[in-house]
Amino acid sequence: MPFFKDADEVYQYLGGVFVEASKTEVGPKMAAADIDLTIYYTDPESVMTIKMHGDNIEVLTGEENEDADVKLYMTADTGDKYWRGEYNLAVGLAKGQVKAKGPVNKILKLVPLTKPLFPMYREGVAAKDGAAV
């Protein structure tokens, strides 16, 4: 059974981590990547575009960007595991568990920047974890 019950929860938690990142010292570093990233999730079906430019991160939930620099395709559970620090994105890409279109190296450069956000994400889903028991 998927961790997220619907797209709204995906946006709240997986989209929310990008929103929260923009409020930390990590945000401007991620925004400096100067890319648009669209993530397509399954189980439940959902899509979001994260625009990282200048020193700003903008999250557009329910919106795809056909012209995004990088597009990622994965299950929402994979996204959850990544933000918990339990999933290696590079290995997932190599194994085909995560699909990508565009210059993947741009996303892989962001991966080290996201590690300080893992505890914040785990704290954010803690109440949902408790409800899932």
Score class of each variant (00 low, 15 high):
Met1Cys: 12
Met1Ser: 14
Pro2Trp: 06
Phe3Lys: 14
Phe4Lys: 01
Val10Thr: 06
Phe18Glu: 06
Val19Glu: 10
Ala21Lys: 03
Ala21Trp: 04
Ser22Asp: 08
Thr24Asp: 05
Met30Ala: 10
Met30Trp: 02
Ala31Gly: 00
Ile35Val: 09
Ile39Pro: 01
Ile39Phe: 00
Tyr41Met: 02
Thr42Ile: 04
Ser46Asn: 07
Met48Pro: 03
Lys51Ala: 08
His53Tyr: 11
Gly54Pro: 06
Asp55Trp: 02
Val59Tyr: 01
Val59Pro: 00
Ala68His: 01
Ala68Asp: 03
Lys71Pro: 04
Lys71Asp: 06
Lys71Gln: 12
Leu72Asp: 12
Leu72Gln: 13
Met74Cys: 14
Ala76Leu: 06
Asp77Cys: 08
Thr78Pro: 09
Asp80Met: 13
Lys81Val: 05
Arg84Gly: 09
Glu86Ser: 14
Tyr87Gly: 07
Lys95Gln: 15
Val98Gln: 09
Val98Leu: 14
Pro103Asn: 15
Ile107Asn: 12
Lys109Asp: 11
Leu110Met: 15
Pro112Phe: 09
Lys115Ile: 12
Leu117Ala: 04
Met120Val: 15
Arg122Gly: 06
Arg122His: 08
Glu123Trp: 05
Val125Asp: 08
Ala126Asn: 10
Lys128Thr: 04
Gly130Trp: 09
Ala132Val: 11
Val133Tyr: 12
